[in-house]
Design a protein around this nucleic acid. Structure first.
Lengths: 254, 254
DNA sequence: CCACCCTCCATTGTGTACAATCGCAGTGTT
DNA sequence: AACACTGCGATTGTACACAATGGAGGGTGG
């Protein structure tokens, strides 16, 4: 259980202190990826020392990375209790999706106005990568790339606060998908992404927004948010109890 | 120039390591307040060591506080160059306002649905405080309380991601107001806030949203964002030069 | 006289040591 | 037997020491 993550220091850097601010980014990105690709399950404890050993950096760096992740909502930082991978409740998931609809609508409208030919080309490339991942059976990478597509779209909207917010929302969405998806099939059907790009390229705002909203509908229709919950959910539902009450003894009298 | 901020450790705590996570919050809150109340002008350098001495904590704490502030956009963190109070450009200000309209509209609609009687009472109390501050001539506190009003409204909307985003937007807005306001009169006329509360209490969504949008219009009509800029702006425009060149010698040949 | 380069200093980035805190287990008591 | 208390272990919170970076100033050459 000690070497399950990537080997230390993916990118060899000159000396210990490479270009400043780069070290945390690497750690951040790796943990982020691991969470989104579900190599780290919700609720998993993220020990600073263990992570530091794995990545070959001190706890200082780990701590900063965890801090960023916590700010984005994919990691829960409990004072004096350490960090765990967030396990969004159904209610939290609903809130995230509501916020996303709001933001995606605005982003789509803005992207129609501002997207450059280059950005549109990049978007098409990302859809290709996404399709490849799914056809390769790499579900984790697929979820991540699908999220990055929406992030790229946000960049085309040319509004810094929106981009930042979207990053946080996409992260949490990916976590929610990883946690709640009913196992049938692909999440962001890349076909919908392609149609969306077409509408944006044609500068058809109405159609683009329409497609995006349908896309959102499809995403959460694939989740088990409504009604009762499956096995995974039990953990999520009771996680808030487990961290305040003793897990050894039932926290709730039946 | 060494003791211009509040005396150390406003709230006396038990020993050095009080309740965990509290220390950073205090420092964070103090710097935040100082920036919003314009006791720290945009472009001011925030030395870690100096702040650490002022607050009586080590650079570690300061660094974390600055990190949070940077994430909210009120502080700019330049690698290897230290932190400065952000000085939003006109374009950045526009983006923030665009995002705020989006978010405020949604928040207003949700607040109409979910606001409890208690929350409405709290909102009224905040407007009172705000009015008091302005009548007392405390412009800084007024700006801050006005922002906190909008933040409280966001809480009534019961959507965690939106609250978090709103916090960031309000912070930046306050900074923008502090920087660009044409000196005439109060920014958030508290009267508009009162009307807004009335509409929310009456569960009149349409009216509430309408009032909020007008409120937004009023706010940025009071700023000098359009066209050229006045005296205050000069500072903003040249602040990036002033922090690289010596202030004693003209940075730009006339 | 101006421009370029080199050295020095201030400040940040990182690693590590120490201390406080929390959860857990063992033990004693009712 | 169940509850409460106390001590221990592990892990986080904080401070500090060292290393590296970037800028400023002085000096030299053109």
């Amino acid at each position: 259980m000690n070497e399950q993550l990537q080997p230390l220091k993916k990118q060899p850097r000159a000396g210990k202190a490479g270009r400043s601010g780069t070290q945390d980014d690497i750690v951040y990105a790796h943990i982020f990826e691991a969470i989104l690709e579900q190599r780290l399950a919700p609720g998993t404890k993220l020990s600073e020392e263990a992570l530091g050993e794995i990545f070959g950096v001190s706890r200082t760096i780990i701590r900063r990375a965890l801090s960023r992740l916590a700010h984005e909502g994919v990691v829960l930082l409990r004072p004096n209790r350490g960090a765990v991978v967030a396990s969004p409740s159904v209610e939290e998931a609903r809130q995230v999706f509501m916020a996303r609809r709001l933001v995606e609508r605005a982003i789509t409208e803005l992207a129609v106005q501002h997207a450059t030919a280059e950005q549109i080309a990049e978007l098409r490339q990302m859809v290709n990568d996404e399709r490849d991942s799914f056809s390769r059976g790499d579900r984790g990478a697929g979820i991540r790339l699908s999220g990055e597509f929406h992030l790229k779209l946000a960049e085309a909207a040319k509004n810094a606060p929106l981009i930042s917010f979207q990053r946080s929302l996409v992260s949490q969405t990916s976590l929610i998908i990883a946690q709640y998806e009913s196992g049938n099939r692909s999440h962001c059907s890349y076909d919908e992404h392609t149609q969306l790009i077409d509408a944006i390229e044609a500068r058809n705002a109405e159609l683009a927004v329409d497609l995006m909203m349908h896309h959102m509908d499809h995403i959460d229709s694939k989740l088990n948010l409504d009604e009762e919950s499956a096995s995974d959910d039990l953990h999520a539902v009771f996680s808030h109890l487990l961290q305040t009450k003793k897990p050894g003894r039932p926290a709730v009298k039946l």
